[in-house]
Amino acid sequence: MTSLPAATSRRLGLAIDLDTCVGCQACVTACKGWNDRAEGHVGGLGDADPYGAEPSGAFLNRVHAYQVEPEAGPPQTVTFPRSCLHCENAPCVTVCPTGASYKRAEDGIVLVNEAACIGCGLCAWACPYGAREMDPTARVMRKCTLCIDRIYNETLPEEDRIPACVRTCPTGARHFGDFADPDSAVSRLAAERGGYDLMPDLGTRPTNKYLPPRPKDRPAEVAPLAPLLDIRAEGIAGWLDRILSRL
């Protein structure tokens, strides 16, 4: 049923640290690798013309790069991973005509039942965040499952029971946990760092939180190469410099 659950007992999601993310795209690759397996829950992330002139494929995670210009100080580069936010008020779920899209009452994860998806694309239209992409080969909608086939998978070592993007992130910019528990690591992180929602005015109430880049703690006007400009010549060159300066 594509009606949303009134409340979910847990709210699993990600806290994404924009201060730590370096835009290496490892999460993009790890996500594609894990979810492109036929035996996984997603069951494949198809590519059209993968080795040809116009490759185009389905991904569940994309890393953007922005230039942010503050009122004062130099511009900053911010790399920005974008994936499903597992909204509490998910517009992608209620528009689905077949019941293929649903939000789980037990953990709040938004999923697609591939066997019931007609590939109409309305859920992708309804999502403001571009979290859903049509699989060009299977012609059904794909989305982030928070790696439901890892987080509950007891055949995996315990440290691997987190989403592939979180497991692979080399800088620890992605954190996975339960936002319904105020004492969880992600809840505390979001509270301490001022974790925020994307486009909150749209009323989607995203679960995932973005942690803003920390303010720069050093004055921006000191150029890191400035000491090298103050060159003092020594030896014969120094003697010549002094003589010639007096003339």
């Binding site: 924009l18 994309r62 953007h64 230039q67 942010v68 900053q76 911010v78 965040y129």
Partner: peptide, 19 residues
């Protein structure tokens, strides 16, 4: 700025596309 939430820091524009 609101789509990324980076508008709170300053004017936000695309530096490079993700693909």
């Amino acid at each position: 700025g609101t789509a990324t939430g980076l508008g709170r820091i300053g004017r936000t524009r695309v530096l490079e596309q993700p693909h």
